[in-house]
Computed example of a mutant assay.
Amino acid sequence: MRWSSSAALALTASGAHALLRFSCSQLVVERLDPLVNPGIAPSPHLHQIVGGNAFNTTMDPLKPPPSQATCTTCTFVDDFSNYWTAVLYFRARNGSYHRVPQKPNVGFEQANGGMTIYYIPYTGRTKSSVTAFKPGFRMLIGRQDYRTREEASRFRQLTYTCLQNPMTRTGETLDFPKQPCPAGIMANVRFPTCWDGKNLDSPDHMSHVAYPETGTFENGGPCPATHPVKIPQLFYEVIWDTTKFNSKDLWPEDGTSQPFVWSQGDSTGFGNHGDYVFGWKDDALQKAMDSNCDSCPQLKSQTIAQGNQCRKQVVVHEEVDGWLNAIPGMSPGMEPIVSGLSLRQ
Rank of each mutant, 00 (worst) to 15 (best):
W3E: 15
G15V: 08
A16I: 08
L19Y: 08
S25T: 13
V28M: 09
D33F: 01
H45L: 05
G52H: 01
A69N: 00
A69R: 03
T73F: 07
N82Y: 02
Y83P: 07
T85W: 00
R93N: 15
Y97V: 02
K103G: 09
P121W: 10
G124C: 11
R125L: 15
A132N: 08
A132K: 05
F133V: 01
K134N: 03
R138H: 09
R154W: 09
T170Y: 11
L174D: 08
G184H: 00
G184A: 01
A187L: 10
A187V: 05
N188R: 14
P192V: 09
M206Y: 00
Y211W: 11
T214Q: 09
T216D: 15
N219K: 12
G221F: 07
A225P: 13
V229Y: 10
K230C: 06
Q233L: 15
T243F: 04
K244R: 13
S247M: 01
K248G: 00
P252A: 12
Q258R: 07
T268M: 07
T268L: 11
G271H: 06
H273F: 08
M289K: 07
N292G: 01
I304Q: 13
N308F: 04
Q309G: 10
R311S: 15
K312C: 12
V320Y: 05
M334E: 14
E335S: 11
P336C: 09
S339C: 03
S342G: 12
L343F: 05
